[in-house]
Design a protein around this nucleic acid. Sequence first.
DNA 1: TATGAATGAGGTTTCATTCAT
DNA 2: AATGAATGAAACCTCATTCAT
Lengths: 209, 209, 209, 209
Amino acid sequence: MEYNEKQIHIMDTAEKLFATKGFNGTSVRDIAEAAEVNLAMISYYFGSKEKLLEAVFVYRSEFFKLQLESMIQNKELTPLQKMESLIDEYINKLTSQQYFNTIMLREQMKNSNPLVIAQIYNLKNRNMLLIQELIEEGQKKGVFTNDINIYLLMSTMVGIANHVHMTKQYFAEKQGLQGLSEEALMKKIQMILSQHIKKIFKTILTNEA
Amino acid sequence: MEYNEKQIHIMDTAEKLFATKGFNGTSVRDIAEAAEVNLAMISYYFGSKEKLLEAVFVYRSEFFKLQLESMIQNKELTPLQKMESLIDEYINKLTSQQYFNTIMLREQMKNSNPLVIAQIYNLKNRNMLLIQELIEEGQKKGVFTNDINIYLLMSTMVGIANHVHMTKQYFAEKQGLQGLSEEALMKKIQMILSQHIKKIFKTILTNEA
Amino acid sequence: MEYNEKQIHIMDTAEKLFATKGFNGTSVRDIAEAAEVNLAMISYYFGSKEKLLEAVFVYRSEFFKLQLESMIQNKELTPLQKMESLIDEYINKLTSQQYFNTIMLREQMKNSNPLVIAQIYNLKNRNMLLIQELIEEGQKKGVFTNDINIYLLMSTMVGIANHVHMTKQYFAEKQGLQGLSEEALMKKIQMILSQHIKKIFKTILTNEA
Amino acid sequence: MEYNEKQIHIMDTAEKLFATKGFNGTSVRDIAEAAEVNLAMISYYFGSKEKLLEAVFVYRSEFFKLQLESMIQNKELTPLQKMESLIDEYINKLTSQQYFNTIMLREQMKNSNPLVIAQIYNLKNRNMLLIQELIEEGQKKGVFTNDINIYLLMSTMVGIANHVHMTKQYFAEKQGLQGLSEEALMKKIQMILSQHIKKIFKTILTNEA
DNA sequence: TATGAATGAGGTTTCATTCAT
DNA sequence: AATGAATGAAACCTCATTCAT
């Protein structure tokens, strides 16, 4: 599917609103106004509000995919270093695609649109495969333990990172960081998260603190 | 605030629907039909849909509070044992109050009703205090390390547990557990989660794998 | 019809609200709350909101009747003096019964309840008779002219007085009297109105300025 | 603000209903049915029932303004003749815009919409200025007395005319004019009112009967 | 291709009244 | 005699979508 500039603009606007106010909390009128396009355009381009959501998913999933292939092939990195790379890549995606990520979280909570669910599972499976590959490499090389539950590992990374992102306002308050700019706060969170998750992964993967 | 049986029944019904379909995705009519009460009853008892949500929060928050006081005073348990107890208690609450928990997650995602936000922060702060107390006890006794970020620790427990709960269907598929009853699956997840989080906490708190 | 204290209290409250917000703009709940009585009391005592309005009319009409009989019999007063007395009496009623008067004005504007219309016509007719009597006395004595349109005369008094009352806020602004207390303003208006209408009546009745 | 035919049609219909049944006594459904438009059109065009009232006010105020500029400049008319012209113009407006006038009267009785109040004051102030101008001209020329209260003068004209209009049914009954067509009755009232108010004005302005 | 106008359906809330006690 | 609980009806408004152009 090819989208023109206006369509992409609508999707960007919708993505932000869906993330902020929820799918049902966002009216087509809201989107049209925020995107400064004619109300009828949205049905005209996407068919319906539901299909607009699907379009956002199909379109954004592409950008959300972790780009790790070359790094994984890199023979100069240890399995643990590669895993750390993956963690950073994930945290980066989360930060740069926070609206889309929020929508994904929301949609996982309800019996959502099948196409949307499929996209989410797709992404999850892709990430799973990358982690799986790394785990197996580490296990073969004898640096990772043998009893690793990939699903739990992934949930650890995704769960912690998402929770911190979702509650970043609370975090800022508790850590006395309300003064920080949004950008600076995000950077700080990224750093802390990266370090924290890496530490946890090391223990899980290598059984060493 | 005292509620009569009918009011509690409406709140229970609303809680389930809000969790399943979201606040905006649930109409007052949905609630009235599901609860088998007259549509006008809901405004009559709660004033508005918004205030019904607030009522659910105020009412359920009570049940969601961790009950750990006596355990914490118990001098026969080590700090780590107490922390493990806290983890189990939290995971139990999550399981038994999963609808309410889902609503809380949803509400944290948007600029929600101030009263609702206040209730959530309240609960978070309570839990923080309990963890704080335990950490300090452990540090005094020299069994916990000194550089523990409470907020990160809490986010670790809450984030992982919630993520696994939210995606339990995906988990079941990946682990080949689709055959299990809902109840059995929940039990399994509880067990796995408990073990997993305890392991992570041990590393973070004691720096030992 | 005899009313108990509570019923009178409800009617007083309703009178004020009907005058201030209009019949349709006032809900039975409003009245119940303002009167601090149980909501069901109103239907219970008066049957319906409509019948409450009727009750207010029947009850208040009594108080609104001009009390001029003895004055009219007084042989020491000239017809013009009697007419001036009548003007003062009317203006007094208007001031002391302003809520009821406002309701009457409102109800005359629409196709109102027949009983209400009847009450209003009743009052009007009574006043008409008094004026008629005075006019005839004046004409017999040769101090009033012979071509007096009673209806126009009455409309002059009632129209001017009501209009000034209704727009008293505008009047206060224009005359720089915003600082005055409500009471002082009413007194001032009463005085000005009395003088003004008397002057007009003199011209109409005697053809002298 | 430019309105299309349909919008004007809706405003005309609403004006009539608001005048006849009051703002609160008129439902949006009433208006939609009377105007034979879809119910949603009204919100679509005007936003809300309240804003429709405002629109009626803004739109109609234009037509209600007295058009007297050229007459006032006319050097061949005496101040009194001009004042009589003004009276006729006002009575004409009242007759031709009776629905709008009724709404204005209603709205002055309650704490109404600020925009509506502003429009009313606007109109009043405009009329006041015209009268003021005429009075001053008359006083300069020595034909009017010096102690004229403009506000009272205006209230005299407006109050009498409105009261007669409002109670024209009663008038018709009392004068034995029930047989007359609506139009003929209006004409009769206009004539009588004009003559009556002019007479009163002459006395007030010149102190001559 | 693009859009202003339009609309049926359904949203939440309030209403006056009734009923069981 | 008095009232808390309840409710059907109707209020206003917004929704996603369609249609004529």
